[in-house]
Design a protein around this nucleic acid. Sequence first.
DNA 1: CATGCATGCATGTACTCACTTGCATTAAGG
DNA 2: CCTTAATGCAAGTGAGTACATGCATGCATG
Lengths: 185, 185
Amino acid sequence: MLTAVIDLVAEKGYHGVSTKEIAAAAGVNEVTLFRHFGSKQNLLESAFHHFHYAEEMKKLFREKLVGELYDDLLLISRTYHSIMYRNRKMLQIALKESGIFSEFREKANKHPQQLKGMLAEYFNTMYEKGKLIETDTELQALSFMWMNYGAFISNLHSDGASFPSVTMDAFIEQSARTFTRALTP
Amino acid sequence: MLTAVIDLVAEKGYHGVSTKEIAAAAGVNEVTLFRHFGSKQNLLESAFHHFHYAEEMKKLFREKLVGELYDDLLLISRTYHSIMYRNRKMLQIALKESGIFSEFREKANKHPQQLKGMLAEYFNTMYEKGKLIETDTELQALSFMWMNYGAFISNLHSDGASFPSVTMDAFIEQSARTFTRALTP
DNA sequence: CATGCATGCATGTACTCACTTGCATTAAGG
DNA sequence: CCTTAATGCAAGTGAGTACATGCATGCATG
């Protein structure tokens, strides 16, 4: 039921899908859905809270970085896209229903804010090691994040049909090279 | 009526707003809305077709660029964000209802594809002038576009409350500097 | 075997939705 | 002045919505 409501709401929107549809997609009767969750809104919120997307990134910044700009940016970018893709349905819902459930928007905002913070801090330590030019690390972190965010959103719709000639992996490598060349002293 | 339906659908989604609400917001009776457009869907499509967002960019690439990477990227970026902001309601609708009206998604996809093409071509001529390193210009164009796209989408929701410390203008200048340093021989 | 619990099914309720119809009012143009 | 067209208002249509209720069925545990 939880995966059914996530799938359907991500595709058609909260008001675009009925409880009957959700129950049918989950293979249960509509009434058991209400016996479990009480209301349609509660069902969606329950499903939304059963997911998470943050811990893996924190661990990466704590343990996996090697101090080489290109390698680290590549790893961060790859991890970012794999996490975002795994949670793409959730993010689609947060995008579509942010005007209706402000709760979703807040949760979806925390993640990039944390990532920006960790990335800026990483840039700061790299600067202290003499491996980064003097620059506004917060802005550079945001730029790198937004570049990957834009790529992700763009590939979310129509399953990559918008730019068929370009593979995501080639973009990730190229963009890591670009930022490395721009930020290396 | 056209602006009313755009505003409301952008905020609450197509199924989240009723024809009665739209008519009330437009200051007319619900029935005159049906006499003009016949159906709710036709009303939204009519409103959507009364807008455009492409010509200004084409003109910029034809006439305004000076051949200096930083100045040109800055101008492109600023123009991009002003166009996107002016049409943000339309883009929100295309984002939210892409699963329902495939027509909207197609129209919203044409614009970035054209922009990518023009930007890649600009990079090519800059390379021939010896003002750009040897690189995959298509990928670089995509990266620059996606960076600005991600920034735009991020500021679309909650009216900039997600990253209050950073102004859009500072980001634009910094990102243009970053790409200039990365791509200058 | 008996009890309890989860589920399916049919039906019902109160409401909203997109959309229609008939009629009265207004205002502009020949 | 009279016609025509656009609009408002009241009422209604049929479908679909979230959600509730009563009852029968199965299934596991005591």
